[in-house]
Structures are given as C-alpha cells and as structure tokens.
Amino acid sequence: MKNFFQRIEWKDKLLGVIVPLLVLIAWQSAVSLQLFSPLLLIPPLTLVDTLWYLASSGELTTNILASLNRVVFGFLIGASAGFLLGLFMGLSSFFDQFAGPLIKASKQVPQFALMPLIILWFGVDEFAKFVFIAIGAFYPMVFNTYQGVSSVSKRYRELAQVFDYKGFRYLTKVILPSALPLIITGVRHSLGLSWMFVVGAEIFGADTGLGYMMAAARNMFQIDVVMSGLVVIGSIGFGINFILQIIEKRLLVWRVSTDQGAKCKS
C-alpha cells in the first residue's frame, strides 16, 4: 500500500488533481444546466459560503467540540479496555482460551445493533454515547494487541531468557516494543471506528455534534449544511489520521528501511 503522505513528485500530484477538477466542472455545469433540483445540488461556491457561515456563527465549533469530546472519552475507555484484554490474552494462553472465544463470538454482532439496547439501558444522555463509541473502539484494539503480543518472535524470547529478562522488565523492554507496530495499527482502526460511531450515534439521537447537525439539516432539507458536514467530518478524519501517521513515524524510527507491506484493513 503506497503511503499517501509520502513525498510524491509534483507531476504525480498534478495527475491527482485531474479527477477532483473534472468532478468540480461536472458539478458546476450540472448546476448551470439545471439538471437537478437546487434542493438536491447546490453550486460548489455555495458550499464554501455555507462552511464560512457555519464557522463564523460558532455553530460549527460547538458541534465539532461536542463530537470530539465524545470520541476522546469513548475511545479512551474502549481502547484501554481492549489493550488490557489483548495484552492478557497475548501473555497467557489460558486466559486466551478462556476469554478469547466469547470476545470473538461477540464481535459477530454488528455494533450498531447494540445502540437501541444501550439507549434503553442508559438513556439518551452522554454516557450512553460513550458506551457505544467505546464498544466500537474496543474490538480493533483487542485483536491487534493480542496479535502483536502473542506473535513476539521466539528468537527474541530466547534472547530475553539468555539475558535474564523477566516480569515487568521483559514486558516493557521486549514484548511491548515488539508488539508496538500492531498496537499502533489497533489505535488507528480504533480511532477510525470511534469517529464513525460518534457520527452514527449523533444521527440516531443527539442535540449537539456533527452527526446531529447533518441529521437536522437533512430533515429541513438544507443540503448545503449536509454537504458541509461531510466535508468537516472528512477533514477531521483526515487530521486524526495525519497526526497518527506522524506519531507512528516517531515511535517506529527503528524500522528505518525495513518497511514491511502494510496491512490493509479498512
């Protein structure tokens, strides 16, 4: 998988803008030719106006902060639970045999199916949303941490034995660094899912947040606001990914030229 953030030659970059440019031209001509109702398709520039209006009125900031707040809490709860469980499962094969089947089986339930249950149990307030997002963040973290911890090469385990590394020292100096690439993958998927789940939870029932903003706009047929919402959640998703890439590069400097084929899980 080619890394999107790698340095790309400017010629290649130029090729990359052709498609968006064509889309823009088609969009603008569709509007000018009045192919679709203005209720369904707004001119590209109106979108910029709307974004500017939403940003300057403060509405956007409020909703962004509400969504981010939910993501941070939900992610922290779900990802730390997933990390700890994955760690224990990776370290102890008994615990793996004990808890693994249940965790794998429970993953078969699409997490959105749990939303009505969570609402019935915890109401529609913030806590219910944290729980829902945490469930989304949990699974990628548990499986990736488990995979990373349980697949530490025998070569390194032997080395640790020769140099008498045990317990906490063994965990922090050998196991965790070796599992780090997969743990970071887990964090990335986990955050990605959290961001998707917060939007879902807010569309389903909330009075703040970007998902709520889009759902409310849809009810009032404000397509410009819906599309602005898409741009904003997409940009934030992009930003989250970008920051994680930088952190990943920092943490994994040692992988200098041994770039293994990245795993593709969406």
Binding site: V226, G229, L230, I233
Partner: peptide, 12 residues
C-alpha cells in the same frame, strides 16, 4: 474521500 466516516454518507 475515504476519510469520511461511512455513516456520514447516510444523510446525503
């Protein structure tokens, strides 16, 4: 485009 969380497409 992949950066948009999938659920976000639903209103549009």
């Amino acid at each position: 485009i992949r950066q948009v969380p999938l659920i976000g497409w639903i209103p549009l």
